Simulated scan of single mutants.
Amino acid sequence: MDKISIIIPCYNMEKLVAKCISSIKDQSYTNFEAIFVDDGSQDRTKEIIEENIKDDARMKYVYKENGGLSSARNFGLDMVTSEYVCFIDSDDYIERDFLMELYNSLIENNSDISVCYFNRVYENKVELNKFKSVFYNLVRFPAAWNKLYKTSLFKDNDIYFPPGKWFEDLGTFPKLYMMSNKRISIVEKPLYQYIQNPTSITHTFDERIYDSYDMVKTNEDFARKNNIFNEYYTELEFINIYHTLIGTVYRSSFLEGFDEDKVKEIEKRVSDNYPDWHKNEGIRELQLFYRIYLKALHHKQYRLIVFLLKLLHDKINVS
């Protein structure tokens, strides 16, 4: 059994981190190290972690000054010497066979990344999230955490999480995908439990939503630097469609002053670089509502879009 490193960034998680620790301790795959990176917590996170890991030599606690989620993950990555690495958010938890299933899938399929289904866990319901196809579904929700990676993907290609930005996973996973040469396998079981937090950035709307522009661009710059932009043009175009034309337009609709001009401005941002975006094959993988919306956007029905988005705020989920 090869050693797996687990990086768990923590910030003010005194109420939830114990359950995360318990789920890691209970893993059927036992050859791992768990690195809890305390990103400058101001509550009892340190005490809770140390109390819960003191009887398990596979687990270690490290402290760093506050720098954000990307900074904490990168700090942990720099400590990793094992061949495989994964990430768990400290307010989430994993099923007992999370590591075993992902490891077996990666080895048996000669993959560079293995990924599992996950559950969104709400206060009063659980929602299963699964993937019909590797790229178009994964890139819609490019989370770091429901995956096992070859560590070399990060270190050999100088890939780190962009510090100080929202949507850091959007600026990271597509790079890993491209450098994996699409060697990705899927475990069709919900082995990761994603706790829904109403105060997370997914449910927050301010000007930092436009950090997504930087994250999209960093993938394109990375592709050009590695001379693979043309090879992955279709995928990069789809990232713009889903995360800019759908995600950013939707989030912008919550901000004061959202109007037809804002929709037009965002659409132009994509069409200037991808003039035939409406022909992207990934669009047919989307739900009917999104396909209709994108058709209206292509035909410049900006007024209709503004009206519908404000009407349907509570019925759309683009996280």
Rank of each mutant, 00 (worst) to 15 (best):
T244A: 06
T234S: 12
L255Q: 08
T199G: 02
D259V: 04
F254K: 04
Y242V: 10
L255I: 14
Y213F: 15
N240M: 12
N230K: 11
N219H: 05
E220G: 01
D206E: 05
E256A: 06
D261Y: 08
I201F: 14
S253P: 01
K225G: 00
F205R: 08
E220C: 03
G247Y: 10
A223V: 07
T218K: 08
E220L: 08
F254P: 00
V216I: 15
D221N: 11
P198T: 15
S200I: 09
M215V: 10
T204P: 00
G257Q: 05
H243D: 06
T218W: 00
N230L: 13
T248E: 13
F238C: 10
Y233N: 13
D206C: 05
R208N: 11
E237W: 04
N227G: 03
I228P: 01
S212A: 15
N226V: 05
H203L: 08
L255V: 13
F238M: 06
N240V: 06
Y213G: 00
P198G: 07
E231T: 15
N219Q: 02
F222C: 04
H203Q: 13
E260L: 04
D211W: 03
Y242D: 08
E256Y: 06
L245Q: 07
E207H: 08
P198A: 11
S212F: 05
